[in-house]
Design a protein around this nucleic acid. Structure first.
Length: 106
DNA sequence: ACGTTGATTGTTCGT
DNA sequence: ACGAACAATCAACGT
């Protein structure tokens, strides 16, 4: 079973991240929801003037799933495109090794 | 080979 | 600035 998610990951930790697994930290790409929210956020709020995050968030989630695969397609497509972006970092991250320039000193 | 985990992404709103 | 519900992700790692 899935573990409970309290949604409290560490966002934007301190710069002095000391315990990171990825040396280059190839942040993954966005998620379909991210794109979906990017477009719906306006619409949702527009339909619910005065609505707050708590409601918008739930509203968004409901609609998100309400979409047909076809409707999510554009979002998924972006997600995939974004993932591709990440793929790049990951590639460099994996390729990295010794012949890679890296200026990260503190 | 398979499964788990962890890390991450963006929105809104308020404090 | 960040935290929290909302959802996806999915790549790397471990066994």
């Amino acid at each position: 079973m899935p573990k409970e998610r309290a949604t409290t990951r560490k966002t934007a930790k301190k710069d002095g991240g000391k315990k990171k697994k990825d040396p280059n930290a190839p942040k993954r790409g966005l998620s379909a929801y991210m794109f979906f929210a990017n477009e719906q956020r306006e619409k949702v709020r527009e339909d619910n003037p005065g609505i707050k995050f708590g409601d918008v968030g739930k509203l968004l989630g409901e609609k998100w799933k309400s979409l047909n695969e076809k409707q999510k397609t554009p979002y998924e497509a972006k997600a995939a495109a974004d993932k591709k972006r990440y793929e790049e970092e990951k590639a460099a991250y994996t390729a990295g090794g010794d012949a890679e320039e890296e200026e990260e000193e503190e």
